[in-house]
Design a protein around this nucleic acid. Structure first.
Lengths: 145, 145
DNA sequence: GGAACTGATACTATATTAATATCAGTTAAA
DNA sequence: TTTAACTGATATTAATATAGTATCAGTTCC
């Protein structure tokens, strides 16, 4: 069971770079180099982030992408859902049919509880909070004691 | 993000059938029909359960498979790990390298906490507990009030 | 006008998951 | 003692998801 796909991981890292450069347009090339993300893959990913309205773009020379939300308002949960779909038990519950297999339905109830916990936790982790952690690690800011 | 693959889901259901028939050999054909699991797929899956030492088999006519452990000792966590591998954040942390991408490492710390919660919860859910729930639902047993 | 950009889209590669097929060997029972 | 009902082992295919690449048109700045 893999929690984060590379795409989600890349998205988080791209947004961290953009959050660190709020108010400025940053080119895909720059992000690609800084975060070591394959350029064309990143391009596609950024277009998805635009569709998710987390960033905006500017075409042409000196163009690029810019974060368009408060980093504290962008949660890892949103990103996981945007790129990997909602946390789900198995397909059966998606179809909302009366399960042919009751076992899954029994399990489902249990797992729904777990899902709620996981979602609540991922909701707490934001680009803003990650960036602050990063800055502490990199020594740009002294951690509050 | 899908929590259970079909294989794990099938394994749980097969074990529920076997737990309800403790002490008896049940054929793959019977399980397949009862739980609506593709026969050949189930065959392969049962062999994995044998390797995991959760069931034993008997060849020949009147043969089949039989559960070989106390259903309360078989957790969904074990099955997820057996069929899908351990819950992990992303590949990077597996390799135990010093992450090129620090963001993931920051995230990692947070997600490790979430993983512990999820694992603890899946550990509590056993074939035995699921079976008891099923029996209550199906009215074989009165729920304790 | 040309270099530095994004938009859009099509394509390929790889891995994982799901399902199917085949044949040899074992056992119970008619 | 033959045959039907089984598992063991393994090979193959199909479907889907993930990851990565390529191309060309259009925009903007200088």
């Amino acid at each position: 069971m893999k929690v984060l796909t590379k795409k989600t991981d890349y998205a988080i890292r791209a947004l961290l770079t953009l959050a660190a450069s709020r108010g400025r347009y940053v080119s895909a090339k720059t992000i690609s180099e800084e975060q070591d993300i394959p350029y064309q893959f990143l391009r596609g990913l950024l277009q998805e982030l635009i569709r998710l309205e987390l960033i905006v773009s500017k075409e042409g020379a000196q163009g690029g992408v810019m974060i368009s939300r408060d980093p504290d308002e962008i949660s890892v949960k949103q990103l996981i859902e945007g790129f990997q779909g909602k946390v789900q038990v198995s397909e059966c519950m998606f179809r909302k049919q009366i399960c042919a297999n009751r076992a899954n339905c029994v399990l489902r109830h249990e797992i729904m509880r777990i899902e709620q916990v996981v979602n609540a936790e991922f909701d707490k982790i934001t680009i803003g909070s990650l960036l602050r952690n990063l800055e502490v690690i990199q020594g740009h800011v002294q951690p509050a004691v």
